[in-house]
């Protein structure tokens, strides 16, 4: 049996702050094939960002395993995790996380610098792709929110990563900008055949997703929706069901 490109197996994560313990994820499992676009939805605090951070090796699960492109992400050391992020992962954040003192072009160059492969012409191409070629020398403070997120998308694609993780990329944008950003992101990823895991709390965005998953209180469930024929069905999914207590819906495939 071949392993999926992204394979999350029964991971749990809890956070401790002062005396309180908060369960962010409970035995979540999912599999994503290469080139798939997976939408992860759920209300604030449901564990979407935690799951993305774990897949990006920015954090470690308390239990369970995460494999990305055959790499055991949960067990990577600090330097290997950095290399993994630089080579395999592109990240888009809700609040853009652009470096304010750098220009748009320099922000796009950052992941390349991390890999030691600075390529200004590629950075310009990516800015052109997101429609900001003429704003390459502008600082983030001179760009609108939508433009900043487009720069962030260009930055996420800088090293041509196999996996793009987007954490509520339209959360801070107005509807028009959100649509444009989402279109750019999905098109750019699909055109390159890359895998996209998109976290959003908005159910209506990312309708073109290959697979949809909903996280509620740290538990993952596949989303069921009305098909064009009017039958209730689950979205095409290779979701592995989870949770030993049985309060978790089984996986299904369209």
């Amino acid at each position: 049996m071949t392993q999926a490109f992204v394979s999350v197996r029964s991971i749990s994560k809890t956070y401790r702050s002062n005396r309180a313990t908060v369960g962010a994820l409970r035995e979540v499992s999912l599999e994503i094939e290469k080139g798939e676009f997976v939408r992860l939805s759920g209300p604030s605090g449901s564990g979407k960002t935690t799951l993305l951070n774990l897949v990006a090796a920015l954090d470690r699960p308390d239990q369970g395993e995460i494999f990305v492109a055959g790499i055991d992400v949960g067990r990577l050391s600090g330097s290997r995790a950095s290399k993994y992020r630089a080579e395999q992962v592109g990240m888009v954040f809700q609040s853009y996380n652009l470096i304010p003192q750098l220009t748009a072009l320099e922000n796009v160059l950052l992941p390349m610098i991390a890999l030691g492969r600075t390529n200004r012409s590629r950075a310009r191409e990516l800015l052109d792709l997101v429609g900001l070629a003429d704003r390459s020398n502008h600082n983030p403070s001179q760009l609108s929110g939508g433009e900043q997120q487009r720069v962030a998308i260009a930055r996420a694609l800088a090293n041509d990563p196999a996996l793009v993780l987007a954490d509520e990329p339209t959360g801070n944008l107005d509807e028009q900008s959100a649509e444009r950003v989402m279109g750019l992101l999905t098109n750019a990823v699909r055109e390159r055949g890359r895998t996209l895991l998109l976290a959003t709390h908005e159910r209506e965005t990312a309708q073109t997703a290959d697979k949809r998953l909903e996280l509620r209180s740290g538990v993952a469930t596949p989303v069921r929706e009305m098909s064009s024929s009017g039958y209730l069905r689950s979205s095409r999914s290779t979701l592995i069901h989870s949770n030993n207590r049985g309060d978790y819906i089984e996986s299904s495939t369209s």
Binding site: A56, L58, G78, S79, S82, K83, R85, A86, E87, V89, M91, F93, N97, I99, L110, P111, I113, A114, L115, R155, N159
Partner: peptide, 10 residues
Amino acid sequence: ATLIALGFPP
């Protein structure tokens, strides 16, 4: 933290 998230070693 953003630099680290982008792939720079800590």
